[in-house]
Design a binder for these strands. Structure first.
Lengths: 222, 222
DNA sequence: ATAAAAGTGTAACAATTGTTACACTCTCGG
DNA sequence: CCGAGAGTGTAACAATTGTTACACTTTTAT
């Protein structure tokens, strides 16, 4: 089993653990490793334990009923996968989870999570905050999807990621991934990007973007 | 202050409260009433306490940057409003909350919530489950929005709400509200509904719907 | 009972996005 | 260095949805 850096985990960082090894030994859990590009969790699978990604990175994607893929996000270890759903009445995973590299996943039973929360207020607090942040992420996602034009989505997304006007920044997604992220067709996204460039609002060089006119971008939101 | 039926509240129902009045007296909280059609909470407002709707009903709606309204849901007392966000790092309300009638709202400080969770495992468990269910609701919302055609959204929505083929059921929203719920224009929704009727898939009488051909509806999801 | 307001049906037209197809560039492994 | 595959630019056309407008029906308030 690989070495886990608990202090980097948003849920565990505040734990007062004098002996990390002892802590992990006391924890009833199972650990599994998966090779690259494996579908680890299917949308709809029962979720009766907390899945903690301890090594590697995964991609979560939601598949709509019409078969389209609506990319959600990339998760890097250490971080829990869909922690909120352990406690829901209908405890099924809402997304597919696919390994992007060789990964290691720690499966902690629900009862153990309960025990940790009871005995460790800091853990409880972190766990709550982490879930709250996840909810906020979903809300933002909802917000993005509710913007109806592609150029509007792009404006929102670029403004959110830009460090400021005329300052270049890198978007770590290619056009195909971006299109999935927005839930639109790839050529349509390319067209909208080209229009933004032609209108002098932004500048693109591979994955490097520069906002030239942030006010112009903001106008696309109305 | 109105009488509160705690047993009907998803978060409080499992509390072992021998004396409800004493429980509420011990709870440090403030109670406010609002008349009908008042904007109680604005999207972006700081959320440093748990807002519990104890009487009446409210409507929550998300306003996108382009000014469009994306209806989310109607909430009836007793139920907490956006309970997850009390604990998030950026603890701001994600939605507007408007009263639909005269309402009463109990404001419980975050510290009090923490105390309740520490001292009352059942409360903690219910609170977690409730938040998890909310997350699942958001995920479903995301799912619905990610379906691209209006007829697809309608098919998904109607199949989800129908008790079965040829059995009538009531949708408690008018066309305008439904259009908001789906994030589409009202006449476009009307057109899609008319098409579903014309194709013999459903039957409509005011707010009463009947699915005539559920397989036909399912085909719209591909 | 009746006027005002809210909700619905529908049509013509505009705007946006999706689909498909293909040429081109870039990257990476052999 | 070269070829395969991935990623990009772009164009023509189809499909879907939005916009606007107006007549009509239903509900609500006085």
């Amino acid at each position: 089993m690989g070495k886990v850096d608990l202090s980097a985990c948003p849920v565990c960082s505040k734990l007062d653990i004098t002996d990390e090894t002892a802590f992990l030994d006391n924890l009833k859990c199972t650990i599994k490793t998966y090779p690259k590009n494996i579908l680890i969790i299917r949308q709809g699978d029962i979720c009766d334990a907390l899945y903690m990604l301890t090594l590697g990175s995964v991609k979560t994607e939601m598949i709509t009923e019409n078969g389209n893929i609506l990319g959600i996000e990339i998760i890097k270890a250490p971080r829990p996968l869909a922690p909120a759903f352990v406690f829901s009445d209908n405890n099924r995973f809402p997304v597919n989870v696919t390994s992007l590299e060789e990964v290691e996943i720690m499966k902690i039973p629900k009862a153990e999570i309960m025990r940790l929360m009871m005995t460790n207020p800091d853990f409880m607090s972190s766990f709550m905050t982490h879930n709250a942040n996840r909810t906020q992420f979903l809300t933002n996602r909802l917000h993005l999807l509710s913007i109806k034009t592609i150029k509007g989505k792009l404006a929102h997304f670029l403004l959110e990621n830009s460090p400021g006007e005329e300052i270049s920044f890198v978007i770590n997604r290619n056009q195909t991934e971006l299109a999935d992220f927005f839930g639109v067709a790839r050529p349509s996204l390319a067209r909208s990007l080209a229009e933004l460039v032609q209108e002098g609002l932004i500048q693109i060089n591979k994955k490097e973007y520069i906002i030239l006119n942030s006010n112009g971008l903001r106008e696309l939101l109305f």
